[in-house]
Amino acid sequence: MKKSKWTIIDTVIVVAAAAVLAAAGVIFGPSLMEPSTNETITFTVMIQDREKGIAAAMSEGDNVTLSLTEKDGGVIKSVRTEPTVVMVYDSIDGVYRNEVNDEREDIYIEIEADCKVTDKSITTGDTDIKVGADIPVRGKGYATNGYIIDIVD
C-alpha cells in the first residue's frame, strides 16, 4: 500500500477546522456553561387597539405559539379586555389627555410557559421574555402580536 504523504492542503484543512472549532467555542461556550434553571413563568402580553371580537377567539387553556419559527409556545391562563385608551392633544388648552375609544379594545393575555432562567435572561426556546419586547401570539384560529408588560417569576 502506497504511504500517504502529508501535504500543504492537509495542513490548511486542519488549521481551518481548528479555527471553526475555536470560533464555535467562543460563540456558544458562554451560553452552554452559564448556570440556568428550568421554571414555569407567567407573563402578560398586551395587544393594543384591536377590533372588538378578536379576543373572543382566544380562550383559557389554548396552546399558543410565541415565535415565528413555531418552536416556542405556552398556554393561555386568562384573557381580559379593556376599551382602548388613546392619548389625544387638546390644541385649545395645550394639554394631552387620555380618551376612551369604546369601539376598539386592548387585550391582556396571561400566558404560562416553560422557560430557561439565568441571571441575564428568561427565554422560552429562542424567544426572550422581557417587558417591552414585541412578541407574536398565535393560536388555533387567530394570530396577532403584542408587548410583554409583566413577568411573574
Binding site: T118, D119, K120, S121, I122, D128, K130, V131, G132, A133, I151
Partner: peptide, 8 residues
C-alpha cells in the same frame, strides 16, 4: 437597555 426583565 436590556436586562433580565426589560428591553427598552
Amino acid at each position: 437597555i436590556i436586562t433580565k426583565y426589560v428591553k427598552t
